[in-house]
Structures are given as structure tokens and as C-alpha cells.
Nucleic acid binder design. Structure first.
Lengths: 205, 205
DNA sequence: GTCGTACGATACCGCTCTGTATCGTATGGG
DNA sequence: CCCATACGATACAGAGCGGTATCGTACGAC
């Protein structure tokens, strides 16, 4: 057969790009399959429908997105935490004024219906990102790693949203400064009272 | 005539609610005019089209939204700055799990096309909110009021976005803690070097 | 070589969307 | 009193939507 998974992979690639670049609602099935170079019916052979394609697109992006924000390289945990903001700043500056922010936040914003299959995917992504931040925070010796991770997530999403509206990396640099502040606070407190991991900052239901 | 501005006002009221509650794209003209109790043609008599109605809805909301976040009451500037986060926390907790975040961020997220008339309205809203934060920051004696205002805006939007995804006020409380941190930092630095207002943190083009 | 199957293409269905055209009507100003 | 005008209701146009049905085809397994 002609590469069973080929049509599926091409669909996912085209869907990810188009959903992110022009929005989910603004991306029609016909345009999507045309860009993927795939027959329309191939979409419905591989996915239950558009909603499932959206969810699967995000599911595939989850791991890649986290690996992009927090590459699995050795290094000072503090630097790796702050590196998240450098990635976002690079994305804004390299986008030429078309930065679109966190794909998961974007999807959830567009899909009002909290029953949409993409919602739990977005929540799980944020939960897994939080877990990674908790681990790094603990590694850095933060007094309350869960709390620090939650703080950083607020800064990350705030930086991304501001970056979308302003199309400018200045808010990300502000977020990075604040991140350094709360990280150093937590590390100093950790040196006094010892590290305590608290990973219930976000729960996946 | 039967109250010239009545139909227009009812349209704006219905549009604001429906656009925010179910999304702009998911709100059809027929449903909108029906809820407003208005003939369909009345919409096109008062507005150039749906896009203009969206923009005008946000234009009307701008002042109200800023007054809600920063009520014009006398009081300690630091408390008023922190009060923003209390408003957001109240909104999340009072929403019963349907908090939808900042209406302007939400609109911009849904309207990919940066040429949509709602975009400049959202940008101007954020710029005006920033100006108000700058004034309060200067009043509080912050060393660099523009920088503090930018920091707070990141925290505000981060708190709102996290609130939408988690439907929980915990991230807002985290944002409030960080806000207190950066405010106190700026106030302490201001006590040392004096206050300097720097309102070019965001420009409206 | 033959069969099964995943494929691309295309026509089609029913629905909804924004926006227009056209009614009859009620009401307030001159 | 009478007419201009803003109004609500409704039918309609043109387009696009998600999803289905049905082709002929090319290719891999056996």
C-alpha cells in the first residue's frame, strides 16, 4: 500500500500549521486536505472528525512543545528555567510580527465549549509542563518547588499573551526579570529551610 | 420615532454578552438580533457589519473594564494596584467555572486577522490600562513606574489566562504575591533614587 | 497474477453563515 | 393631520461549512 501512515502524518502536519496560523474555525476541511495533498475522505478514514483532528494535533504537539521550552540538556536548573523565556523571546522576534502565542492557550480560547476534546489535552499539557517546572525548581533547591512552578507558569502565559498583543519581546523580558526574582527568592528560602516538593499545584482530572 | 438609540443600545448589550459568553464566531446575526429583540436590518442600519459591531462592543467596554479593575476611589496606591488581582479572583470564583478571561484578549485571540477593526481597540485598551497603572505606580513612589506597570500587566494577563484554563483562582493569588514583590521592590528602589515616570512602555499607533 | 485495500478526486447533502431586499407599521415632528 | 422615518418581521441570495457517497486507481501481500 502507499504508505499507510503517510496520509495521516501529512494531515497532522498541515492541520497543526493551519490551525495555529489561521485559527481552527477559519480552517476548512477542503483547504486543509488540499494543503496536505490528501483526499478529503482520508481525513475521515483516520479521524472521527475535525474535532478529533484538532485534539490529536495538540496531542502530538504536547511533547514537542515542552521539549522546545525545556530542552533536555544538562545545565544549571536556574538557567534552564530562565531559558524558557529566551525561547519565547526568540519566537516573537523571529515571527516577523505574527507571533500567535501558546498553541494550547490559543486552541482553548477559540473552542469555547469546554466539552471539546481539545480541552483536556490543553489542560494536560499545562499540567505536564508544570511537573517539569516543579522538578527543575526542586533541582534548583527552591523552598516550595510547586509554588515556584505555578508562579513561573503565570509568568510564561502572561509573557506569551502580551507578546501576541504587542508583537514585541519586551513583556517577555519583563517576565524573565520577574522569574529571576521569584526563583532567587525561592532558592534563598530553600537554603534556609530546605527543599520541599509540592506538586499539587495543578491536577489533571 | 421609537427611541432612535434604543435598538442600537439593545444590540450592543446583547452583542457584548453573547460575544463574550459563546465567542464571536459562534454568535450568528440571527441569534444576536433575536436576543436583542430587534429586527435584523436594524443591525445594518446602525453598524457597517458584524466586524464593526464587534469593535464597537469592545470600544464601549474599554472604559467600564478599566474602571472595574481600578475603581476611582481614594486609597493607598499599592493597595489599589493589588486590588486588580482581587477583582479578577472574584470574577473567577463568582463565575461558577465559566470564567472567560479578559474580553479584549479573548477577542484578539479569536480574530486572527490583525486587520480586524477590533485589534486596535484591544491594543488601545491595554495601553490605557497601562497608563493608569503607570500613574498609580508613580503615585506609589516606584523607581521606574513604566517598568512596574509593564510587569503588572504581564502578571494580570498571565493570571487571567491561567484562570481560564484552570477555572481556579490559585494562579491569581500567585500573581498577586508576585505583584506585591515587584511593587515593593520598585517602591524601595524609589525611596533610594527617587521616582521616574516612564510611560513609553506601550505605545498606541 | 490476482485480490484486497488504502488512496485521491469529485460530486453531493443539509445546514448555517453574513448581508440584502422588501414588506407592513407605528410614531413623532411640522 | 400627514408624511418621513426608524422599526420588526420575513424571505432570499451567495457562499462556505462539516461530513458522506462513490468513483477509478495503484500498489502490496500472498
Amino acid at each position: 500500500m502507499t504508505g499507510t501512515k503517510d496520509a495521516r502524518a501529512r494531515l497532522l502536519r498541515a492541520a497543526e500549521a493551519m490551525f495555529y496560523e489561521q485559527g481552527i474555525g477559519n480552517t476548512g476541511i477542503d483547504a486543509l486536505t488540499a494543503r496536505a495533498g490528501v483526499g478529503k475522505m482520508s481525513l475521515y478514514r483516520h479521524f472521527a472528525g475535525k474535532d478529533e483532528l484538532v485534539a490529536e494535533t495538540l496531542r502530538q504537539r504536547d511533547e514537542r512543545h515542552r521539549a522546545w521550552l525545556l530542552p533536555d540538556e544538562p545545565g544549571d536548573p536556574r538557567d534552564r528555567l530562565l531559558g524558557v523565556f529566551d525561547r519565547i523571546a526568540d519566537a516573537i522576534e523571529g515571527s516577523g510580527g505574527t507571533f500567535r502565542g501558546c498553541p494550547f492557550v490559543k486552541a482553548v480560547s477559540e473552542l469555547e465549549d469546554a466539552g471539546h476534546p481539545a480541552w483536556p489535552v490543553a489542560r494536560e499539557h499545562k499540567a505536564r509542563l508544570t511537573s517539569a517546572l516543579v522538578r527543575l525548581a526542586a533541582e534548583a533547591g527552591a523552598a516550595d518547588a510547586g509554588r515556584l512552578a505555578g508562579d513561573l507558569l503565570v509568568l510564561i502565559d502572561g509573557a506569551a499573551v502580551q507578546g501576541v498583543i504587542r508583537q514585541d519581546a519586551a513583556p517577555v523580558r519583563a517576565a524573565r526579570r520577574m522569574a529571576a526574582l521569584v526563583i532567587d527568592d525561592a532558592m534563598e528560602a530553600g537554603r534556609r529551610v530546605g527543599t520541599r516538593v509540592n506538586d499539587d499545584a495543578m491536577e489533571v482530572e
